[in-house]
Design a protein around this nucleic acid. Structure first.
Length: 843
RNA sequence: GCGGGCGUGGCGGAAUGGUAGACGCUGCGGACUUAAAAUCCGCUUGGGAUUCCAGUGCGGGUUCGAGUCCCGCCGCCCGCACCA
């Protein structure tokens, strides 16, 4: 073996060897048990980001480990290739979205290959190719046939200057990002998927996902938001009624006004011939459509002059038009209870409306004033006639029972979850396979005409959807009546693409989306790994899509991801100087900066720069590092090792130059140790044997629970033990085991060393070698260290045989000089003994 | 605003309610070397000076014993339905 490990040549050599042997190709016909390891596929932005490296390294270690444990592993990769950045590039640089995307994919694929990931590239998918999205169109039509797709009006962000629909992220402070114009809400007829039909199922399914993080399940549960409430009617002074919904019918006696959405029929009626009302409604239409924006915007209202008659008290409640009430939510009208709802409280304060207390900590506090905010907590009902003295839950039930008995309302389950709007007024997405015919209405494209492909000749020089402007693409004949008709020009939300790609990975016939038998073999995904930012939307949509396909009989599996892991971000320090002219920071890249223990200086002028906070790597803050450069300098194994070291995988990982250097050093340290493998060495070293077997067992557990940082720490520990041990057969066996333990993490180093260490063994590639066996007899130590405390404070330790009796431990502890000194003659009241762990003497 | 999470040395972190700081990074000291690199060894929570005190964001509580459990704060991060 050479003196130094040379990653530059070893990396490419072993990557080629794996390719040639097709080591990581998943075999559908294998008799081995299956394991499907999947990481969230990337958007092809152009370059692999260090966060991808972390994500894919984790999956790779698990996939390689599973192979060593004898599983047939499916570990595929693909590209979430539709989306806005390609269109932005087209507008800014005049390149075609398709060309731009495909070039990015080629670059990123080469980058991934340089990292040595054990991926089955024969199953690579790009969602922007008709071979993928054509099947998606077929599935969309299947859902349509089963009544799970429909059209309705829904609001979008409209840029009145660019005459285009904006994504939420394109709206900055209520203005269009390019035009700077004030954004308006505009209603368009759009396509929806009936995810609400699955609300109950999706909620109940969460309880089966015991290998998902608790926090993700909680977030989804809250998102689905099942609530039991009362839908009821108030009589209006203008005649007729207003239908309202409340999840807190118990607080009905605290209602002091009624608020309706700006596009509620009552508001619309009130606006006829009233300029002031029309102006207010127009004001409500300003601004974006996001929940955060709506809820943080100043609460505005307009008193219509209409009164609603309170069902119990007969009080006349003013009816306001309010900007914080949403038409798509419940009935678009609410009974406002300022005392027990914060939004209502702010509104009431602003418009000087009564704030009544109907829930209090106790009956004695019925008249207690509010302390500047509403009180949403539990308590006892007060000032509420027949409800007085009840708990919130009892009062809810009582009000619902009364309303139903008297016929003015009914208990109703309402979900926060809304149907999924999938229409996008954009080019770079899956065309929605429908045709609009003046005679026949909305007609699905016959499946035999799929895929509906995107036209290539499009122009991005004008804002708006190029599909609408295209001279010929949208003009087709109606498939039913043959008359001239128009294609749907909306494309699908890219979340649809990522809602079934894991199925296509498992099976990819040419003539249909997948083969259900193959899906049954591979699914559910054993381990899914990705960012916490996908905790709700992507994961909920993928669960929905899977259940929808199961309901219409396409597949059997109901939950796509058996186990989920959400990894943290990769972060880095920021370096900047404040620009004197405008007070804004000017950022510098890590490569431009010399870091010292005291601070940092700019290489260019040797003058200091500020060291800013450690934050998520982002181009705008320039705190990014390029994985390719790291691989070129330190090799793939060093960057992989860094990704696994130190930080728990679910937490953020701060990148540091010193850290990667340390990883590079450790690769060489292992190489030197592997070179000491001596098959002829004789003699047994029980301590080394024990350490090795304990480490093998522990690391297997660490990898299976994705505790990579712990596995790394154990490898450091074992390395230290082997280095210090005298030569023996045990030591040589330990070196061989260590090599196998690091093989999933540092596969190139492991292959290079295996050529020597594993010479003559059946597996010629370490990629095909088996995980080392554990001798259970070697897992237990025969001696243990027991802590001795006096009144909970450590005073001594005892080294005793494992299993020493309670009585003996107590005697030994009391005999300790240190214990006696700490007791200082005090009377021993009690001795707590936990065998093999500790003795606590209580005085 | 609403929902979810996190908080331990100079830094990343470890610790089934049972010895807080494993392991790594940095820094400092030493060995080897003509020298450097590489490598190896030691020290590295604070205070007090020998075996003591304090300490896991802050304030309370439960317990023989709390980083871990409970209550109330503070700070930071993620998501909020058209970013992916």
């Amino acid at each position: 073996m050479t003196e130094r490990f040379d990653p530059a040549q070893a990396d490419t050599r072993w990557q080629a060897a794996w390719d040639e042997a097709q080591s990581f190709r998943a075999d559908d016909t294998s008799s081995k048990p299956r394991s499907y390891v999947l990481e969230m596929f990337p958007y092809p932005s152009g370059r692999i980001h260090i966060g991808h490296v972390r994500n894919y390294t984790m999956g790779d270690v698990l996939a390689r480990y599973k192979r060593m444990k004898g599983f047939e592993v499916l570990h595929p990769m693909g590209w979430d290739a539709f989306g806005m950045p390609a269109e932005n590039a087209a507008m800014e640089k005049g390149v075609h979205p398709g060309g731009w995307t495909r070039e990015n994919i080629a670059n990123m694929k080469a980058q991934l290959k340089r990292l040595g990931f054990a991926l089955d590239w024969s199953r690579e998918i790009a969602t922007c190719e008709p071979e993928y999205y054509g099947h998606e169109q077929a599935l969309f039509l299947d859902l349509y046939e089963h009544g799970l797709v429909y059209r309705k009006e829904s609001a979008v962000n409209w840029d009145p200057v660019d005459q285009t629909v904006l994504a939420n992220e394109q709206v900055i402070d209520g203005r269009g990002w390019r035009s700077g114009a004030l954004v308006e809400k505009r209603k368009l007829s759009q396509w929806f998927l009936k995810i609400t039909d699955f609300a109950e199922e999706l909620l109940e399914g969460l309880s089966t996902l015991d290998k998902w993080p608790e926090k993700v399940r909680t977030m989804q549960e809250n998102w689905i938001g099942k609530s039991q409430g009362l839908q009821f009617r108030f009589d209006l002074s203008t005649g007729g009624t207003v239908e309202v919904y409340s999840t807190r019918p118990d607080t009905i006696f605290g209602a002091s006004f009624v608020a309706v959405a700006a596009d509620h029929p009552i508001a619309q009626t009130a606006a006829t011939g009233r300029k002031d009302v029309q102006d207010f409604i127009a004001l409500c239409k300003q601004g974006g459509t996001t929940a955060a924006e709506l809820e943080t915007a100043e609460k505005l209202g307009f008193d219509t002059g209409i009164k609603a008659r309170h069902s119990f008290t007969g009080a006349e409640l003013p009816v306001y038009i309010a900007n914080f009430v949403l038409m798509d939510y419940g009935t678009g009208a609410v009974m406002a209870v300022p005392g027990h709802d914060q939004r209502d409280f702010e509104f009431a304060t602003k418009y000087d409306l009564p704030i009544l207390r109907v829930v209090a900590a106790s009956a004695q506090e019925a008249e207690k004033p509010f302390d500047g905010e509403s009180e949403a907590g539990d308590g006892v009902l007060v000032n509420s006639a027949f409800l007085d003295g009840m708990s919130v839950a009892e009062a809810k039930a009582a009000v619902i029972a009364r309303a139903e008995g008297e016929g003015w309302g009914e208990g109703k389950t309402v979900w926060r979850l809304r149907d999924w709007g999938v229409s996008r007024q954009r080019y770079w997405g899956t065309p929605i396979p429908f045709i609009h015919c003046e005679v026949c209405g909305v007609v699905p494209v016959p499946k035999k005409h799929l895929p509906v492909t995107l036209p290539e000749d499009v122009d991005f020089q004008t804002p708006g959807n190029p599909l609408v402007r295209h001279p010929t693409w949208k003009h087709v004949d109606c498939p039913q009546c043959g008359h001239a008709a128009r294609r749907e020009t909306d494309t699908l939300d890219t979340f649809v693409d990522s809602s079934w790609y894991f199925l296509r990975f498992a099976s990819q016939p040419g003539d249909r989306p997948f083969d259900p038998a193959k899906i049954a073999e591979w699914l559910p995904v054993e381990q899914y790994i990705g960012g916490i930012e996908h905790a709700i939307l992507h994961l909920l949509y993928a669960r929905f899509w899977t259940r929808a396909l199961a309901r219409i009989g396409k597949i059997e599996v109901k939950e796509p991801f058996g186990s989920l892991f959400t990894q943290g971000m990769v972060t880095h320090e920021t370096y900047f100087r404040i620009n004197d002219a405008n007070g804004q920071p000017v950022y510098f890249a890590p490569g431009e900066v010399e870091r010292t223990s005291e601070g940092a200086t700019l290489r260019a002028d040797r003058a200091p720069v500020e060291v800013g906070r450690v934050i998520k790597m982002s181009k705008s803050k320039k705190n990014v590092v390029d994985p390719d450069e790291i691989v070129a300098t330190y090799g793939a194994d060093a960057i992989r090792w860094f990704m696994l070291s130190d930080s728990p995988p679910e937490r953020d990982l701060p990148w540091s130059e010193a850290g990667i250097e340390g990883c590079g050093r450790f690769v060489q340290r292992l190489w030197r140790l592997f070179a000491q493998h001596d098959p002829a060495a004789q003699g047994e070293d029980k301590a080394v044997d024990r350490k090795v077997h304990q480490t093998i067992a522990a690391i297997a557990g660490d990898i299976e629970s994705l505790g990579f940082n712990k596995a790394v720490a154990r490898i450091y520990e074992l390395t230290g033990v082997i280095e210090k041990a005298a030569p023996s057969a045990s030591r040589s066996a330990a070196i061989r085991s260590l090599l196998l333990l690091v093989a999933p993490m540092m596969p190139h180093l492991a292959e290079e060393a295996w050529a020597t260490v594993g010479a003559g063994e059946s597996a010629t590639l370490v990629a095909d070698a088996a995980w080392p066996d554990v001798d259970p007899a070697l897992l237990v130590d025969d001696e243990v260290t027991v802590a001795v405390q006096v009144k909970g404070k450590l005073r001594d330790t005892l080294t005793v045989a494992k299993g020493t009796s309670k009585e003996e431990l107590e005697a030994l502890a009391l005999a300790s000089e240190k214990v006696q000194r700490a007791l200082d003659g005090a009377q021993v009241r009690k001795v707590i003994v936990v065998p093999d762990r500790l003795v606590n003497v209580v005085a």
